[in-house]
Amino acid sequence: MIKTNYVSDTARNMKPSGIRKFFDLASGVEGVVSLGVGEPDFVTPWRYREAAINSLEEGYTSYTANAGLIQLREEIASYMSRRFHVNYAPDKQIIVTVGASQAIDIALRAILNPGEEVIVVEPCFVSYAPLVVMAGGKAVSVGTTKESDFKLLPQQLEAAVTPNTKAIMICSPNNPTGSQLSKDDLEALAKIAIKHDLVVLSDEIYAELVYDDDYTSFASIEGMIDRTILISGFSKGFAMTGWRLGFVCANEEISAAMLKIHQYAIMCAPTAAQHAALEALRYGFDYVEDMRRSYLHRRNYLVESFNEIGLTCHKPGGAFYAFPSIESTGMTSEEFAERLLLEEKVAVVPGDVFGLGGEGHIRCSYATSMDQLREAVTRIERFIKKTT
């Protein structure tokens, strides 16, 4: 009998995604109103889809350059310059990836030596800390709170830095809280990053979905472009989740290291998806604005409704998530989410799965129709009244 342990300790000790657990629970319940899915409810605009179809009909079915179509990288460079005021060389500093998730993966693997620390600002998307561990690093969690609108405070960052800290990972606008860091916030954090010679991984996938203030890219802050790895993509703002297309921008040294990993692990991003993304960047911003305005209307309704029914909720500056507190109910996040699903057939994600600062909250996506949002609020209010 073979007794070899075939599974690595890293994989064995890794917890499954808490988000997936609740998706699986919800899939077995009929009549569910879901506020759990973190993806646009809009179909990818026809113009982008047609560009992909045309590319197939014209025979563009081979590999592209490892870093992606040069035309797409040039368009990304133009987009980053005019929209976010940061300049990257398309031939040396931009890599087209299989979603933003792969961009984060190759970025961490490119910069980390075994045991080096990455400060992970939480609550955050569930993949961040596991990706640090898979890259051989140590994830150091720093929790934010509702009192600061879930923004990382400079003193928190300063206190978390050790001689072994290599990088900090930030997402703004944030998943799951919707919190958005202002230019002043970023400048304060940048001073600490420069002081301690830290790399910043800035996940800016929700940059097109901001509502009340202008968006500032971390890379645009003075002194930060060479030490920022900017991660973005087409899934959220362009409604292209299933296309699995992202991109990463960094200085030449880091980009060259990421490209080597990308070459061996992936080869290149899907060709047809790259043609769709090229069309999106050239002609798609009217669609983006229409979606953004729709999300803004939904955000205002959902946040106001939560506050009215007794679930305190800060107003998210971006993305498409509300993160109301359920502390007034006396339940844990997991208990609240499970009972709400079973008793009222509303699917939300418990906040504790997103790390420190998440307990006592639930993540509710408003990337769904107004009719569904109204029904969800009705059911949640009924649930609260009978349980408190």
Rank of each mutant, 00 (worst) to 15 (best):
G59A: 09
L340M: 13
E335G: 10
K345E: 13
K92V: 13
L157H: 07
A193S: 09
M14Q: 14
N164T: 11
S325D: 15
A239S: 14
R339C: 05
I95S: 01
R244G: 02
A273I: 01
D185G: 12
L152V: 11
Y60W: 10
F354W: 01
A256F: 15
I192V: 05
V33A: 00
Q263F: 06
S325T: 14
I53E: 15
M1H: 09
N5I: 02
E344Q: 09
I205E: 05
A52R: 09
N13F: 11
K195V: 08
P154I: 03
E334I: 10
P270T: 02
E279N: 03
V210H: 10
L189T: 07
R379A: 01
G360E: 01
R47G: 11
L201N: 07
G310F: 11
I2P: 14
V121M: 05
T4F: 02
I119A: 03
S328Y: 11
K92I: 12
P45S: 06
G59E: 08
L373A: 00
V377K: 00
L189G: 05
F323M: 00
M14D: 06
R244M: 07
G36P: 02
Y295T: 05
Y264P: 01
F306Q: 02
D286S: 09
V126T: 13
F336L: 11
I119N: 01
I380L: 03
P176R: 03
E375W: 00
L181P: 06
I205C: 08
A26E: 03
T241N: 02
G360F: 01
N13P: 07
V132L: 01
G310C: 11
G358T: 02
L152H: 04
E122G: 09
K21C: 07
A256T: 13
E334D: 15
H314Y: 04
A337G: 13
N307T: 12
L112K: 04
S369G: 13
I362V: 14
S81F: 12
L230A: 13
N307Y: 15
I53V: 10
A193D: 03
V29K: 15
V86R: 11
I104S: 04
A367V: 06
D290P: 02
I168F: 11
V210K: 02
E359P: 07
A129T: 06
V199N: 02
E375V: 01
L259E: 15
L108S: 00
V133G: 01
H275Y: 15
T4P: 03
A26N: 12
T378S: 08
R244V: 05
C268E: 01
P16Y: 10
D371L: 00
H361P: 07
R363D: 08
I326M: 08
Y264R: 15
I309F: 06
T10V: 10
M14H: 10
R20T: 12
L152F: 05
N13Y: 11
